[in-house]
């Protein structure tokens, strides 16, 4: 099986690579169109700022590559947000694969970004096979995806938000499975088994 991690100017790609190694999977980091589209699984990581990341993707036509993917594709953190319609972060139009708006947490009482372990309420989806409801995952984010028909897991930080989305072959998780201990490793295994 060939797994690729999309190389771009966002994300702690090394953490994802190490996590895959720990579960016995190999992956290639690349921004080459042919290589990405010929893979069995695509991982789209991301930590960073939405408009800069979108600009970078567009310059290299990686936006179209992602949109044309037919194999399972997993967006992580900013990667998931970029798969949505639009982000409030610098008013950025995104890839439109999930009909979801990405908004900023606004609160007088909460710490922003949300940093740390929060529990996730999972729906019946192959991505969460063997993952108990209310399992803890590691989050670091200031923006969140709204609840939608595509939500396959939700979490709460003063408000309920989508912490995982799925539509057709596209999957996204707001938390970092590569840093979410055994729960995260199970989710990555599940994705590779799709």
């Amino acid at each position: 099986m060939k797994t690729v991690i999309i190389k771009y100017n966002a994300g702690n790609i090394q953490s994802v690579l190490f996590a895959l190694e720990r579960i016995g999977a190999q992956a290639v980091v690349t921004d080459d169109k042919e290589s990405i589209l010929s893979a069995d699984k695509i991982i789209f990581p991301g930590v960073g700022e939405a408009s800069t990341a979108m600009g970078y993707l567009k310059e290299r036509n990686l936006d179209q590559v992602i949109q044309s993917a037919t194999q399972p594709l997993l967006g992580i953190c900013l990667g998931m947000q970029l798969l949505c319609n639009h982000s409030e972060e610098n008013d950025t139009p995104c890839l439109g694969l999930f009909d979801v708006e990405v908004k900023k947490f606004t609160s007088d009482t909460l710490k922003i970004p949300q940093i740390g372990w929060n529990n996730i309420h999972v729906k019946d989806n192959p991505l969460f096979k063997g993952v108990a409801d209310n399992s803890y995952c590691y989050f670091v984010h200031s923006y969140y995806a709204e609840l939608s028909n595509s939500s396959i897991a939700t979490s709460n930080y003063e408000i309920d938000f989508s912490c995982a989305l799925a539509r057709d072959n596209f999957y996204g998780v707001q938390f970092h499975p590569e840093k979410s201990a055994e729960t995260g490793e199970q989710i990555l295994k599940n994705f590779l088994a799709l």
Binding site: Q14, S15, F18, A19, E21, R22, Y138, H176, K179
Partner: peptide
């Protein structure tokens, strides 16, 4: 360390 641990 990074290759061995699954927390931040």
């Amino acid at each position: 360390i990074a290759t061995h641990i699954n927390i931040p």
